[in-house]
Amino acid sequence: MQRAFQRPSGCLSDLVIDRLIVGELDDAARVEVLGHAAACTWCTARIAELRGEQQAFAAGPVPLALHRPKRRILGLSAALAAAAALALVFLPDRSGPEPEPAPELEDVVRTKGAAHVGLYVERDGKLSPLLSGEHIVPGARVQPTYTTTEPGHLAIFGIDGAGRVQRHYPADAPASAPVRPARDEPLPFSLAFDATPGRERLVAVFCEQAFDTAALERRLADDVAVEPGPGCTVDRIDLHKDER
């Protein structure tokens, strides 16, 4: 058995080049690697090639999807899987004491396109959708996602049982964050719930145009109802945090 991939003796491996590109190398290693590359046309070309790959991927990656069709699902199984996926996604306003019933096909069609957030929680080593009205245990780690068919702007707030408001997304910007069309796209944060029992409400606001999140945060803190204005959708999810 001989090596199927061979680089010139002494040249940089892809692992080293990958680490260089993403900035994982310490200063000494970086200087050594760049010193080698400066005198090596093979490595210079390989670095350029891998850097181009990385930049192209980062600019437009295949969306990281929590629900992907299984390639080998066929026939009735595929239809059932598609129906289940649709049933999961539609809860345009999920506040209220009772969990909403599963939507009928007409509801799905009528509301198709409304922007909304999804929550996923680890259960038995797998990610499961978390619906409004469900109970969670302290320490649960929840991954939010968003779905929208149109580009727009998004902000997500959390309100605990004492009425305290926290801006989750974008965490450190005064304006909403732009989002592109995607289905169940994981948002760049997750939530870890503390041990204080009580209600946790998430409020997600999608709008066609950018909006002032600080003003919205103040309204939520003052317990002023947030209703969707023109070109906006408000999605609410209530979770009940149990004592362990």
Partner: peptide, 14 residues
């Protein structure tokens, strides 16, 4: 209140 934790989506892009 929930705490923010690092992002897998960003790791995926990088």
């Amino acid at each position: 209140m929930p705490a923010l934790t690092p992002t897998v989506a960003e790791l995926y892009r990088t």
